[in-house]
Nucleic acid binder design. Sequence first.
DNA 1: TCCTCCTACGTCAACGTTGACGTAACCAGC
DNA 2: GCTGGTTACGTCAACGTTGACGTAGGAGGA
Lengths: 339, 339
Amino acid sequence: MDERREPTMRDVAALARVSTKTVSRVINGLPGAGPEVVERVRAAARSLGYRPNLTASSLRRSDKRSATIGVLFEDLSNPFDSALLRAVEDRARQNGVLVLAGSSEDEPLLQRELLESLATRRVDGMVVMAVGGHQDALQQERERGTPMVLVDRPPTFGGTDSVTTTNRDSSREAVLQLADFGHRDIAFLGDRRTLWTSQERYTGYLEGLAHAGLKLREDLVRTDLKGPDAAERATAELLDRDPRPTALFTAQNLVTVGAMRVLRARDLHHRVALIGFDDFPLADMLQPGVTVVRQDVPALGRKAAELVFARIEGDTSPPVHAVVPASLVRRGSGEIRPH
Amino acid sequence: MDERREPTMRDVAALARVSTKTVSRVINGLPGAGPEVVERVRAAARSLGYRPNLTASSLRRSDKRSATIGVLFEDLSNPFDSALLRAVEDRARQNGVLVLAGSSEDEPLLQRELLESLATRRVDGMVVMAVGGHQDALQQERERGTPMVLVDRPPTFGGTDSVTTTNRDSSREAVLQLADFGHRDIAFLGDRRTLWTSQERYTGYLEGLAHAGLKLREDLVRTDLKGPDAAERATAELLDRDPRPTALFTAQNLVTVGAMRVLRARDLHHRVALIGFDDFPLADMLQPGVTVVRQDVPALGRKAAELVFARIEGDTSPPVHAVVPASLVRRGSGEIRPH
DNA sequence: TCCTCCTACGTCAACGTTGACGTAACCAGC
DNA sequence: GCTGGTTACGTCAACGTTGACGTAGGAGGA
């Protein structure tokens, strides 16, 4: 609109009749400026509406910090991702750090591009929910020395911190509870197999069956369900089998919703037990309430942020793999006994 | 970790035995470099793992673009906000622009600080969901010439683009539908009155009553409900009144959920009609399905992004107030007749 | 008194990049 | 052969800021 130039230190310096260096000192609160000069500079800055240029500053500073971190999640519109983003953001704010956010859509190519964009902007660190498959781009970035923390994924390469939840243990717990309630035919419905979390939850399912002395029925296992539609089809097929599974363990929230939809369509929601991994809003309002494994998303995000910041501050201790416990929330659907 | 310095143009130039200016030309794809030189520079850049420093570049460039926009919403973990963020992000990606995101928590002070942080980083533009109350900070920012678009809020000051949904018209439509189904005592439950959207939706409610020839019963109006707890209390009180409202119009999604919770607790969910403003996941899975006014969130975000980008490109046409139509999604709860 | 130390400034160059401008080499045309 | 234009480079300074270092003046001690 108007052709106004942002005022610079030089403008402030001229108005306050001091050198730019003195303005720099005042703005940064460094010693070496007398009280009157400080006041004069402050007044000049205020009257001009001066605001420091962080990009210029970080270019020159010795530490080169941009006070910005990058966050690369799969899909920011997913409640899990956005809750995580919010947690990271809150923690970042405490350090005066802002967050550059992007969605990788589980596309390696997109992840690579976003990574590049973040690097180009010289972020101080990154919190990444890695896409499935090979993670060369991530590893390269890490090897360049960029502080990086993986969330909801373990590193497939060395030297990197990560934060995950108790995928395997909590899945086992869920399956064991179903077994305790008398179920023998417990089906598994999982997300894309390339996702580490999917694999872990499946392993937990197997462990649960083993602990309960149940035999794995391969025909009750459905994986690679991407999105609610696939989940619905898989659920429908499972319910057509003979003998029909009397309980479902759905290993991802969209899968849970898809399965529920089918159970309700067939009026089986009060007869077939269901435990889902990952909580979702209104799970308690359905009939029956949906029993889920709830992840502590704020804790995940906070921990991830704390780890990056520690690395940014120069912490060089060995890489950490933090595990945040999840818990089983019993609401009814997981406490249905076989008929 | 390692004390590696990021390679610069100078390093590339030295290795390719050309001047930095030539490297600049090659990297930016500008003419004035012979084919062999281009190849030599590219090879050198690749072998050093060179990546341009966007902060230095934008400092020097004449347009001073940072290829970054700021997004300031109320709460990024709210599904509405995160869906909006995602839409803005998608549109931004098309322009090679990244998004700096922050939550203002409806706190004027926090908004001011975040605004400052964004300005300090010299973002090219901002998409802001303004906090309630006076918007001096926003206005000042706007007057400095920062391209800015308000989402889900109209500007309270001149010269600024905004994108909103049909709050008033859709609310009226919802109320009219309730009236058509025979309701005379239609309660209103709204969010904080400082929010423009709340006011608009309330006005729509009044218009609906007026069009239907219904008299406003002040005792059926509850506003300033912040969060689901307040909504629950208000709903409980309303249902205690005599005569009891036979229909509820809840003007915000958390309020809708709170109201539903109480209706269910009193087993009135099949007897009292309910229409909520703003859709939410699983609204269709409840019994009865929840009739809502659905906003076209992706369209809102896309439009907002397009407006900022137009301004960034130098569009100086008069400010636009874009309105994205919302639609009534009938799922059952809004189609209950008075008993 | 002189020397030392400290405080409150200022000067200069550099961070990594690009705009403005210079120049050498080459080609076309007369 | 000379002029004029084009191409492919290079040189230099500047973007806004800060680190390194310099200096004038005053305080303090022997």
